[in-house]
Design a protein around this nucleic acid. Structure first.
Lengths: 203, 203
DNA sequence: CGTGACTTTGAGCCATTTCAACACGCGTGG
DNA sequence: CCACGCGTGTTGAAATGGCTCAAAGTCACG
C-alpha cells in the first residue's frame, strides 16, 4: 500500500500537465516544483523538504513538474486510496489541511521575496529560509550543504546564475558567509545575513 | 453566529502580526493581503476575491494584513466556533482543504509571474488573471473594472506605478486593450494579451 | 477655481542581464 | 599518464529594462 522510492538527482516524478497519480511524503532530500517556460528555461515555484507533503489530493492536473534536486527519498501512496483515507478520517484531513496552510504561508513568504528585493537581499533571504530545513546530520545549523547548483538557485530567485555567483562572492567579501566549496555555505554572522535579507532580525 | 460586514475602501480587517481573530468568506469585492516592508512601502502578496475564504484557521499569528480594495462585503465567523465546526464536520474540513489547495495553486501561478517576466508580461498576465474573477455584472468579460489604483497594481507586480502606467499605455498603443478610463480596461485582443503575458494561448 | 489624489510622460541613472573569457574538477578514451 | 570535453563556477565589460526624479495633465470635490 505504501511504497518507498529513492529518486536520483534530476529524476522527475510527475510531469507538468500530467494528472497527478500519486501522493506522498518526502522522507529525505529536496524536490523542486517547476514550470517550464515557452522559451525553454524553467522557473522553480516551490521546494518540498523532508516531512512535507507531495502531490495534490483531490485536484485536477498539476500545473507543474516535480523532480529531485540531489538524492531524495519519498514515500508514495496510490492516489485513490489516499483520497479515500483523507475524506474518511477527519484527523488525516486535518493534518493535511495544516500542511497545506503551512505551504501556503511559505509560498507567500516567497512571493514577498521575489517582489521588491534586490539580488543580494534575495540570496540572503534564500539562505536564511533554507537554513531552517537544512539542519545538518549533526545538528550544525551554521554549515549549510546546498543540493543546488548556481543555476537552480537562480531559477528559484528569478535571477541569472552569474548574478547569484556574484552575490555569493559579495556576501563572502563582507565576511557574512564562508564558501569552503561552491556547494557549502558557512554562516559566519547570522544577524548580518538577516539584515542583508531585508528583514530585521527579530529577537 | 455569522455576521455580515461591509468594508470601506482601504479599511483594514486584520493587522500584520495580529493573531487572526476571525475567519470568513468574501461576499463581494476584493481584499488584499499585504506585508509592510521595513522602509514603509507595502507588498501585496495575495488577493481574495468573491467566494474565497479569508483568514487562517488553526494557525498562529498572521504574517500579513488584510484590507479592502474598493468597497467589499465579507461574512465573518468567530474563530473558535469555526475551528470547532471544521474539526467536527469532515465535509466542512474537506471544503476548506480544497479552497486552500486552490489558493496555493493561485499563489504559485503568481510566483511564476514575479519570477522571470518583464514588466509588460507581468501586467498582461495580471489582466488575464483578473479577468477570471472580474466577470462583470452583465457577464461582459472583455470589459474589466479595476478596483485598483496604479500604485496597487505596482505593489502586486513588484513594479513602480510609473512603469505600470507606461505598460498600460504600451498595451493600448499596440491595440491590445482600450482604456476608456484609467480604472476600466477593455480587452480588444485576448490572444494577443495572452501572448504578451508570456504564456502561449492554449486552444 | 483651488486643492489633492491619481495618472501620464520624459530624461537620466543604476542594478541586473547579456556576452565573453577563463578556471576548476572529473570522467573518458587515446 | 595526459589530452580532451563537459559541466560548473567565477569574474569582467557592455547593454538594457526598470527605477528615480521631475513636470504637467485630469478629475472629483469643496
Amino acid at each position: 500500500m505504501r511504497r518507498r522510492k529513492s529518486v536520483r538527482p534530476g529524476e522527475t516524478l510527475v510531469w507538468q500537465g500530467e494528472r497527478s497519480p500519486l501522493v506522498g511524503v518526502v522522507v529525505d532530500g529536496v524536490l523542486k516544483l517547476t514550470v517550464s517556460n515557452a522559451d525553454g528555461d524553467e522557473q522553480i515555484i516551490g521546494l518540498v523538504h523532508r516531512g512535507d507533503f507531495l502531490g495534490r489530493p483531490f485536484g485536477g492536473p498539476t500545473a507543474y513538474g516535480v523532480s529531485a534536486v540531489g538524492d531524495a527519498n519519498v514515500c508514495l501512496f496510490p492516489r485513490n486510496r489516499f483520497d479515500q483515507l483523507a475524506s474518511e478520517r477527519a484527523q488525516v484531513g486535518h493534518r493535511l489541511l495544516e500542511a497545506t496552510l503551512e505551504e501556503l504561508e511559505r509560498s507567500r513568504r516567497w512571493l514577498r521575496m521575489l517582489g521588491h528585493k534586490t539580488a543580494g537581499q534575495k540570496l540572503a533571504a534564500f539562505l536564511v529560509d533554507f537554513q531552517r530545513h537544512a539542519a545538518d546530520a549533526r545538528g550544525d545549523t551554521t554549515r549549510i550543504a546546498l543540493p543546488f547548483t548556481r543555476q537552480h538557485i537562480a531559477d528559484i530567485l528569478g535571477l541569472t546564475f552569474e548574478t547569484v555567483s556574484r552575490e555569493f562572492s559579495e556576501l563572502r567579501r563582507k565576511l557574512i558567509i564562508d564558501l569552503p566549496d561552491s556547494r557549502v555555505v558557512v554562516v559566519r554572522n547570522r544577524d548580518a545575513l538577516l539584515r542583508a535579507s531585508g528583514d530585521l532580525p527579530l529577537h
